[in-house]
């Protein structure tokens, strides 16, 4: 058997699965395409490949076209006959249309199924459909819809979250500082973890300058302890952060038709 040729044919047979996966993990989940182990990728590629190969084989048969498996088997055998290559050459256009249509449908299926899973929120409702980008679900507040989560939104929905306020503890020269601000962007690292978060209207204070709690349980004002950080955005490297606090807000109107922030509940 020609190892090079059989490997090439095997790769060719796996192309529908590769394309399906590539178009399923797009946009916010594109890093996940490269994140999994080789074995996981192999399995996740084989199953859709088998599905599309079977579907196309029987569909072609159903509409009266014959897919010659003998020719395919002969080509990857140790002693392929000249007739098989001749047969392949004679049916080149048919083989091309057969495979290109399969690749196109596999790609489009991956793209559409991902959109269906996200728009129907199946990835939040069912763990089976959940993407591994856990930061996406935290930063966008979508984890509120997970069945196992202990915190649920009773009055609002995830879609009502209008912005996320971040508190981050960072250690600089042996001192711990608390940074806060409105989350405006984030970057994922190549392994799917968080690389950076970007906040706007940031300010910081030394962690020792905590608010004192008065006898009636209210926080005393410690705003003078904060140092405002001017600039459009402050980028914080996740690797340097000690911990992160997320608060999810929506905006309401008060009686004077002025906006007022409110925690989602």
């Amino acid at each position: 058997m020609s190892i090079a040729l059989s490997t090439l044919v095997l790769f060719f047979l796996l192309i529908p699965g590769i394309l399906f996966r590539r178009f399923y993990y797009t946009e916010e989940f594109s890093r996940e395409y490269f994140k999994e182990t080789f074995f996981a990728i192999f399995i996740a590629t084989i199953l859709p490949s088998l599905f599309f190969q079977f579907l196309w084989y029987f569909s072609a048969k159903f509409i009266g076209f014959h897919v010659d498996l003998y020719t395919l088997g002969d080509i990857v055998s140790s002693n392929p006959s000249e007739g098989s290559f001749q047969n392949l050459e004679n049916s080149a256009v048919g083989v091309l249309v057969y495979n290109l249509s399969m690749f196109l449908v596999a790609s489009f299926s991956g793209y559409l199924i991902k959109r269906l899973v996200r728009s129907r929120r199946w990835d939040r409702k069912f763990k089976f459909f959940r993407f591994q980008n856990s930061w996406h679900y935290i930063l966008k507040g979508e984890f509120f819809d997970f069945p196992r989560t202990e915190i649920i939104l009773e009055e609002d929905h995830v879609e009502d979250i209008e912005f996320v306020f971040i508190d981050a503890v960072l250690e600089l020269n042996g001192n711990a500082y608390l940074y806060d601000g409105i989350l405006v962007d984030y970057e994922l690292s190549s392994d799917g973890g968080l690389e950076t978060i970007s906040i706007t209207n940031a300010q910081r204070r030394n962690l020792f300058d905590d608010s004192e709690i008065s006898k009636n349980g209210k926080k005393k004002d410690n705003s003078s302890k904060y140092y405002p950080i001017t600039g459009h955005i402050l980028v914080l490297k996740y690797a340097e952060l000690k911990n992160l606090n997320f608060t999810y807000y929506t905006l309401d109107f008060d009686k004077n038709e002025e906006l007022i922030p409110r925690l989602v509940k």
Binding site: E27, R115, L116, S119, R121, D160, L183, T250
Partner: peptide, 26 residues
């Protein structure tokens, strides 16, 4: 108005599955 409009939500749809971090209003 006080009504909840699209401008104050981070809706996702079939063609827009990646919701932004903030609502359009924010």
């Amino acid at each position: 108005s006080n009504n909840k409009e699209q401008i104050d939500k981070r809706n996702i749809s079939f063609w827009n599955t990646d919701s932004p971090l903030t609502s359009r209003r924010v």
